[in-house]
Each structure stands twice: as C-alpha cells, then as structure tokens.
C-alpha cells in the first residue's frame, strides 16, 4: 500500500486546518490579489521591473561536475538562472492568525521546492532563490494563509506575535509598516519589510472578520479560540511523543 501522510493528529477545527494547509492536494483558497510589483516593493530586495541580480552564472553556461544527485534533481527556475538567495519573513499574531511559524514551515516543505525555512517562536523566515521566492510569496500572501491584520511581513523588528492587539485589531508593530485605512477598511503597507518608507502605498486587502479567522486559524488559544486541552486526540499524541522522547535515552520501547 502506498504511503499516505496523515500530516497531524487532532479532531478540532485547528487541527483540521493544520492538515488542510499542509496537504499539497488541497488547493489554497485565493482571497486577495496583491500584484507581483506590490510584493517586490514590500520585500524590498530589488526595484520592481529590474533584472534579477545573480550570484553565479546560469547553470546551462557553467560546467557541472559529473554528479548523480545533480542529474536526479531538477533545479528550480531561480537556481537555473543563478539568482541570489533572498527572504521573506512573517510574524503571526497568536490571536487566531491563519498561520503560525511551525505550520508555515511544514506547509512550505510540503508545497515548495528549494527553500530554507527558519522557524522561531513568533516569526518564520523562508529563504530561497529570488524568482522562486516571489512565486512562493504570492501564494503565502494571496491565499487563506494570510490575514492583513493578524499576519505581518517583517524583516526586522518583528515583535508582536504574543502581544495584545491594538484597538483597531492590528497586531503591534514597532515600525508600523502597515496601517489600517479606516475609511476604506483596507490595510496598506507604507514601509517595506525592514522598515524603509515606500514610495507608494501597497494595499493588501481587508482584514478578515473574527468568524472567518476562527474558522481558518491554526493556533490554539484558550481565550479567543479553541483551547488546546479541548482537543483530546492532540493532547494524547503530544503526551505520547513527550513520553517517548523522555524515555528514549533509557529504553525506547512502549
């Protein structure tokens, strides 16, 4: 029988969402339409429309050593062209943000190629070749994995994940990269991810409402969402892993 990944335990909506986002067979729902140019502006690695700077000559032009692994693995577009490695980093609020760092890393590993994710408690960075990055960033921002108010694109000074929200429902950001336009109800980025002011505002759409967030979150929260302890299966699984890895050094048998 062919191996079928289970992605994760749990019976709650949070666990269900975690599995759904990780499963490459599940097509992520497209919610907003941030253009390529806008994303390039927010990331701030190159001017929109400019050529991709390269780190090495295209693979077709350079002599590759005879290597069976290189023959087996097809290079991504960015690797083929010799692009630089660049990054996008996200901070997710613990107040029902659709994604969270571990979830991001898992789903990226299942869905994308040629990436180097870095997972921290309140932020997650993904590094890859520049043109691949732009393609992946579009998926990460335009789909149900992102919420303009509860997720932030932040290269430096990322603090906000574990803080209370501001009065208007936005996650705290010391550099205030994005602001909520109250008249239009739209979130717009006024600085790029490292905090340099942008020449033009970049709109990333309306913040989603509480009901939507609760239905799409992958974070347990005992006050505003689904408490972890309510998901018995998840608790049992976590306890089992904890117990096994504690006993591992002695005699790893059940």
């Amino acid at each position: 029988m062919a191996y079928k990944p289970q992605y994760g335990p749990g019976t709650s909506i949070v666990a269900e969402n975690r599995r759904k986002y990780m499963d490459p067979a599940h097509k992520l729902e497209k919610i907003r339409d941030v253009t390529d140019e806008d994303l390039v502006l927010i990331m701030g690695h190159r001017a929109p429309g400019s050529a991709y700077p390269t780190a090495h000559p295209p693979l077709a032009e350079q002599q590759e050593p005879a290597c069976p692994v290189r023959k087996m693995v097809t290079p991504t577009d960015g690797a083929k062209a010799g692009d630089r490695v660049r990054y996008i980093q996200f901070a997710d609020s613990m107040f029902n943000a659709p994604s969270q760092p571990y979830e991001r890393t898992y789903l990226e590993a299942y869905r994308f190629r040629g990436i180097d994710p870095g997972t921290l408690s309140g932020r997650q960075i993904i590094e890859c070749r520049e043109r691949d990055l732009e393609k992946y960033a579009k998926d990460l921002v335009n789909t149900e994995l992102f919420d303009p108010a509860r997720c932030g694109i932040r290269g430096a000074t990322v603090h906000g994940h574990s803080l209370r929200l501001a009065e208007d429902g936005m996650m705290f950001d010391m550099l205030q990269r994005c602001i909520l336009d109250k008249k239009a109800g739209v979130v717009k980025y006024v600085k790029n991810q490292i905090g340099e002011p942008l020449d033009k505002e970049v709109k990333v759409g309306k913040p989603m409402d509480e009901k939507w967030l609760k239905a799409h979150t992958t974070i347990f929260h005992s006050l505003v969402g689904v408490p972890f302890r309510d998901d018995k299966e998840y608790v049992e699984y976590t306890q089992r892993i904890h117990s096994l890895r504690t006993k591992y050094g002695f005699m790893p048998t059940e």
Partner: peptide, 19 residues
C-alpha cells in the same frame, strides 16, 4: 511596548520611525 523615534536595529537602523 516601546516606540523609538528612530529604527533601533536592522538594515534600516537610524531612519525616522513615524508612529
């Protein structure tokens, strides 16, 4: 949470930080 007048660290260090 502190709101400094200039960006304290990162590549944009020293830039104005209107908040």
């Amino acid at each position: 949470q502190r709101l400094p007048a200039t960006v304290p660290y990162g590549p944009a260090r020293g830039m104005e930080n209107p908040h």
